[in-house]
Design a protein around this nucleic acid. Structure first.
Lengths: 213, 213
DNA sequence: TCACTTTAGTTATAGGCTATAACGACACTT
DNA sequence: AAGTGTCGTTATAGCCTATAACTAAAGTGA
């Protein structure tokens, strides 16, 4: 161990190449989607031949997993930064929507069709909880009271929810509604299910969030 | 033209084999998802060798397109039948959710991550309008009045919306909210994004639809 | 009935992909 | 300077989609 910080020149180079591979992967995904992601094509773009990439990623699945992790990380950081800058729920929705529209395939990598065999690793679920934690903070109960619906009563029993995050049932409910309503409109918008019916999804989102419980 | 009805024994056989191919395709999709769908594997299962399938489908894409069409058809029929049997919005939501949960990959084939190059053919969009038409009927304005939000005002200008379906802005708004809220919860549920946080998505859907505009 | 045409299947082949194995060449260590 | 580990290579196996060329059978019409 010449390097106590875990940053030997070798490791530095390794990390650099991994980054570069992911870079090309993202470009490929942005154009053709994740299903068309090809290790071979990436290798060719980088001027090296096929199997070399297996020194850096155990296989296609591991590369995709890394991309998913980065996507989660990017979303969590974006949401956190926006909230810390004083954004309210409407502001968060706007930021998330822009994040998604700037690279729809990245959004679908997280919230799109799940891969059958795929099991999300521990840390990515942890990152997704980061997002939820921000939502819970942003949903800090403005309308507190006793459980109004069966769901509220149900949620009272699940307060340990987000990694022990203590939140009132009403706050949980509010955060859930925010998340699912935004995703409902956004995913359909990104998938092109609104094309033909000419209306502005942004207005629908605004209404949906205005009517939050 | 020996057969005026377009049902020569040859065509009958053709249709039969096409059905059988799609049958195997569905089984394969239900297990491994659409990304793992393999013409070769289907051919092997049917006891014939690879390229034979190209007599029946021009390629993988055309097969998938046919599957998407059938999925839309199934959803539209299910929704229509349920509504005609007297179901209200809550009932429709229940039926749609059951339809989706009975075969999640079929749901994602319609509402999941879009294939980059894929352009939905005319008739599938027509079928999706069938679904929307039922929703509009089911949303028949219980709370009528003048436009309350910018979206309502916006929708007033787009009444020609669903193939000339004349609907009040409030009805459109209601149908949109129903659709996007249901999809928001349902797609996240099917994708497994609620696992870990133990709560019943059905209760959330109920609340979301109770609070419809 | 017999030739003609259409169709359904076959095998062969090209070219793509993931992934592993075996091997050469360099760099880093001691 | 010798040893060791790492990065890259080529070769190969085994999938896949898709096309081409061919065979056999079924339908078609005089």
């Amino acid at each position: 161990m010449t390097d106590p910080g875990g940053q030997s020149p070798r490791e530095r180079y390794r990390a650099q190449v991994r980054m570069e591979i992911k870079q090309h992967a993202w470009e490929q995904i942005a154009v053709e989607g994740v299903s068309a992601l090809s290790l071979n094509a990436i290798a060719k773009q980088m001027g090296m031949s096929g199997p070399a990439l297996y020194r850096y990623f155990a296989g296609r699945d591991e590369l995709i997993t890394a991309l998913i992790r980065d996507a989660y990380r990017s979303l969590a950081d974006t949401v956190r930064a926006s909230f810390d800058s004083g954004a309210d729920l409407a502001g968060l929705a706007r930021v998330i929507r822009e994040w998604a529209r700037s690279d729809p395939h990245r959004y679908f990598l997280i919230y799109g069709t799940p891969v059958p065999g795929y099991q999300a690793p521990e840390d990515t679920t942890a990152i997704s909880f980061e997002v939820m934690a921000v939502l819970l903070e942003a949903c800090g109960a403005p309308s507190m009271g006793e459980p109004a619906t069966p769901l509220d009563a149900h949620l009272e029993n699940h307060r340990q929810w987000v990694g022990g995050h203590p939140a009132a049932a009403a706050t949980l409910h509010r955060a859930l509604s925010f998340w699912t309503r935004l995703h409902g409109v956004l995913s359909l918008e990104l998938a092109g299910h609104f094309t033909g019916m000419e209306f502005d999804p942004g207005l629908l989102i605004a209404d949906e969030l205005n009517a939050l419980p």
